[in-house]
Design a protein around this nucleic acid. Structure first.
Lengths: 258, 258
DNA sequence: CGTAACATTGAAGTGGCTCAAGGGGAGTGG
DNA sequence: CCACTCCCCTTGAGCCACTTCAATGTTACG
């Protein structure tokens, strides 16, 4: 975890079955309601939508939330914890497409073929909500606000992907990593977590495979930043000491990145 | 142009104003109806939708179809010609995110903020159709098929972007270029154009900025392929002689890429 | 015919990859 | 509680692919 999450408590020992699937699930009471799906939904629609929301079983680290190639059953939302979204190259290498944080939607890419194109695994114990697609489709046909919001999420996902393309485009390893750290920082900030001090939930290898680098290079660049006094690193703990320096490196990226 | 387009004729001298904005525009009669928006729409909805479709004025090569930062007015569809979708880095370099072919939707990324994040310019004389967003929103609330199809396009755009990420991930210049050529080939094939012989409408520089390379490298790789007897190149004319060889290079990419 | 944009080719430099070895932490079993 | 092990991370040395810089060739268009 990146620190104390604003999300409702979601211990791995979890609640009992009744709570897991019951309708008493309330988006309004959820700590993520300003970040998650309901954030941009008309209040009236939130009430209807939250009745369709189901809570998934807590996943241990390493477990798959969605399997590549599996038929889309629902749209998922991270409640607590984090996950990585990756595929395997023909050479067996991982290509990490995204890291998901609390409030993030998972499975948007599946609307096209109704099949999840990639695997999504928990990087740490993970809790999530879900809306069955069938129900979601029904709801969208009646709730313009929901329809619009889902489209917004889809569109945002396109922008996020292009943002990544921007980063991998032609910049060096240093620039990519700086951009990655800042982007992560921004996303944490929006979740009311510290933007300057956090714990990486992913390995250097994951970061490398996300940025199109090797883990050695990622490691070297991190210690490089440290030597420059721009960050502090100890294991997976990161502290951004001079974000301005990183920002200068990454290029003034005004992207939202979420 | 990539050759004879299956699209309805769309000469640059164009039709008169009445034709340009008239309602007699028919998607059913359009040569792209199996590729463009109506392809996956219920027949009943096509009729309604096509009444909302407007034809844009023909653009000369180099003209902008959408300007970066401008408010989203409509969703566009390429009718004939091609376009590049790019942004500028802080260093003033172009980052080419996509090349649009006939039938492609343009502007999907703008649903998030209602503003076009990037510039889209014609690479050659370009004709297009458009659906005003306001009208599109109205229609989507009444036509489930349209709603679903637009969502499919959005979702597909996410997948396309991730496909690109896959390509730029960590493979070498040769692999990237092979992948690019094959992807283009596939897209042309779907448009009933020759998948093995075509004319690139973009410069080496554009390709380079799309793949995160320099134009020199692109040029070298192309002549490399030529020397191997895998392709024929003369200026912007390309002929794929041994697509299998390129495929082996790119890795067996089963992606759809459109 | 002249110019400008595009493209090819060469030579030299360099950043990140590869290969390789060593150091921690966290978890496990004794 | 300690020892062992596994995985993750760090660091180093050498190499190669792509970039950079530079010059020449080609095509299109006024």
């Amino acid at each position: 975890m990146y620190g104390k999450s604003p999300a409702a408590e979601c211990p791995a020992r979890s609640a009992n079955a009744a709570e897991l699937t019951g309708n008493q699930l309330s988006c309004c009471n959820c700590g993520l309601h300003r970040i998650c799906l309901p954030a941009n939904l008309p209040a009236a629609e939130v009430r209807t939508v939250q009745e369709a929301v189901r809570r998934g079983r807590a996943l241990p680290a390493g477990a798959s939330l969605v399997r590549a190639g599996r038929r889309m059953q629902a749209l998922y939302f991270v409640r607590s914890g984090s996950a990585k979204d990756y595929s395997l190259t023909s050479g067996g290498e991982e290509r990490v497409h995204a890291f998901h944080l609390p409030g993030d939607a998972i499975g948007l890419e599946a609307f096209a073929e109704r099949v999840h194109p990639r695997e999504v695994v928990a990087l740490e114990p993970l809790c999530y909500c879900m809306i069955p697609v069938r129900r979601l489709e029904q709801l969208m046909d009646g709730l313009p606000g929901l329809r619009q919001e889902i489209m917004r999420l889809l569109s945002q996902a396109i922008n996020d992907a292009h943002r990544l393309h921007d980063s991998l485009g032609r910049t060096g390893a240093r620039e990519r990593l700086a951009d990655f750290l800042l982007n992560l920082s921004r996303r944490l900030e929006r979740r009311n977590l510290s933007p300057t001090q956090f714990r990486l939930t992913m390995s250097r290898r994951d970061i490398a495979h996300h940025l199109g680098l090797t883990l050695e290079t990622v490691s070297r660049m991190l210690t490089g930043f440290k030597r420059q006094g721009w960050i502090e690193v100890r294991q997976r703990y990161i502290k951004l000491v001079k974000p301005e320096a990183l920002l200068a490196l990454a290029g003034v990226s005004d992207a939202k990145g979420d």
